[in-house]
Design a protein around this nucleic acid. Structure first.
Length: 429
RNA sequence: GACGCCAUCGUCUAGUGGCCUAGGACAGUGGGUUUUCAGCCCAUUAAUCGGGGGUUCGAAUCCCCCUGGCGUCACCA
């Protein structure tokens, strides 16, 4: 039975790095019909950040990486750790010193294991190892100790975690040995690096997943991108002659697809660097692929349901190819909800032209995109203004901006009354 | 510094001895479509596979050394 866990400590809001670890654990569990557990390692009272525990739940739920069973919190298991430390004391593999309990590491031989990432044998000479604290003088267990006790008690079969724990794995293995337990399999994932090539960390300004959501990233894109950082589908598709992955579409994968094909042996051994550009491209890709009804509700919810959902629904088709993030919706579409107050081009002195436009629009019986377009082209021709210039001025008059969704469609959606009102308004500039 | 992990275009990667004068994607550049901006389409720049030795008829692929990057060296996790 495969049982994995993620063991975040509530000392910060999860970012791409540790969330990717969660994703890989989740994929491995689902792929193998196993369980994916969540343990909060809150034994460091000094670094505790209150809102981070809530954020951990929120992020996992939002992304659809729901854990199985109930959450284990180390701060509520202090007795368990004490009991186990006591056992080691009795066995003589631990000793007290300065109010803390220390574990005695062997001085000779070596400690090693076969790591599932890269399928390699890693070994440390025991002479390089040192004794370490398992129970602090405040009675709390240290990470190294609580981690091992819990992984055993929770019957974890595979420990899939970041590479930063490789150096402490000998400690863990020796602990298992001292207890007479058999250690789980280990898989140490390569660390995700920032553009500065240093490990992604909150301290270093890495954005949290919550930040990405706030910026309008879709969970599908985030999930897909995180998976691609070190893993890709290694199967063969039809028509692929030479090497797999030559088609871009195989980079776009749903969570279900990933679950179907995820294998630890296909996880890369090199540390990937997080590239926001590719994430943005991928997010745009997901937005473009979205069904309008789905995109509509995503935007609506993203904007805290403050804007009329019908208008969002009507305008969504106009902007789905134009935005990379949900946050860009209002940049393009705010004019649907309020009249422009300022104009990116000086429209004064164009009174005559807008008067002509107004009359032409007034005379329109069918208020639709095609009719509007035809009539406007005619006006442009009649007054001898090039399309390019004519429509730019009209665009600014209606939207306030030089960049906007397609004009005719926008005018149709806005409605005759509002459009004419705006055309009248610019005649008084 | 000690210990450990890693090493293919700027970035993510394909590649497990001959299909590689190294393929794809993102980013970049040029062009086309065009009523803006996107999108889409086409083209294109970019890696002497970190360096040096081997092994082999043949190496990005196997071995060794060097170098570099990263990680860990707490009563943090």
């Amino acid at each position: 039975m495969v049982r994995v866990r993620i063991a975040p400590s509530p000392t910060g809001i999860p970012h791409i790095g540790n969330t990717r670890t969660a994703l890989f654990n989740f994929l491995f569990a689902r792929r193998n019909n196993g369980e994916f557990l969540l343990r909060i390692e809150d034994t460091d009272r000094a670094r505790f950040v209150p809102e981070s525990e809530k954020a951990i739940y929120e992020i996992l739920e939002w992304l659809g990486l729901k854990w199985d069973g109930k959450v284990i919190k180390q701060s509520q298991r202090l007795e368990i750790y004490k009991d186990h430390a006591e056992q080691l004391l009795k066995k003589g593999s631990a000793y007290k010193k300065e109010g803390a309990i220390h574990f005695e590491m062997p001085r000779t031989g070596e400690t090693s294991w076969d790591d599932l990432i890269g399928n390699k044998h890693i070994s440390f000479k025991n002479e390089t190892q040192e004794d370490f604290v398992i129970i602090k003088s405040d009675g709390f267990p240290t990470y190294n100790f609580a981690n091992v006790v819990d992984d055993h008690l929770m019957e974890i079969s595979h420990v899939i975690r970041g590479e930063e724990f490789i150096s402490s794995t000998p400690k863990h293995i020796q602990l298992y040995k001292a207890f007479g337990w058999s250690p789980p399999d280990f898989a140490h994932l390569q660390i995700v690096l920032g553009p500065d090539r240093a490990q992604l960390s909150t301290m270093h300004g890495a954005k949290s997943i919550l930040d990405f959501r706030k910026e309008g990233f879709l969970k599908e894109a985030l999930l897909n991108y995180m998976a691609l950082l070190g893993w890709r589908f290694a199967g063969q598709m039809e028509n692929e002659e030479r090497t797999p992955y030559v088609f871009p579409e195989r980079e776009i994968m749903s969570l279900d697809f990933m679950i179907l094909f995820f294998e630890l042996k296909d996880v890369n051994t090199t540390s990937p660097i997080f590239d926001i550009k590719k994430l943005e491209w991928m997010n745009g890709m997901y937005i473009r692929k979205s069904q309008i009804s789905n995109l509509k509700s995503q935007i609506w919810e993203y904007l805290d349901k403050k804007y009329p959902v019908e208008t969002i629904g009507k305008t969504a088709p106009l902007i789905k190819d134009r935005i990379k993030k949900l946050s860009e919706y209002l940049l393009l579409c705010d004019f649907f909800f309020k009249e422009p107050e300022k104009y990116e081009i000086d429209l004064s002195g164009k009174k005559e032209m807008f008067r002509n436009i107004e009359i032409a629009l007034e005379n329109l019986t069918e208020w639709d995109e095609i009719g509007i377009g035809e009539h406007m082209q005619k006006v442009a021709k009649d007054i001898g203004v090039k399309n390019r210039e004519f429509f730019m001025l009209l665009r600014v008059a209606v939207t306030g901006k030089k960049i906007s969704p397609p004009l005719n469609e926008s005018m149709e959606i806005l409605g005759k009354e509002k459009v004419i009102k705006r055309i009248k308004k610019v005649q008084n500039l």
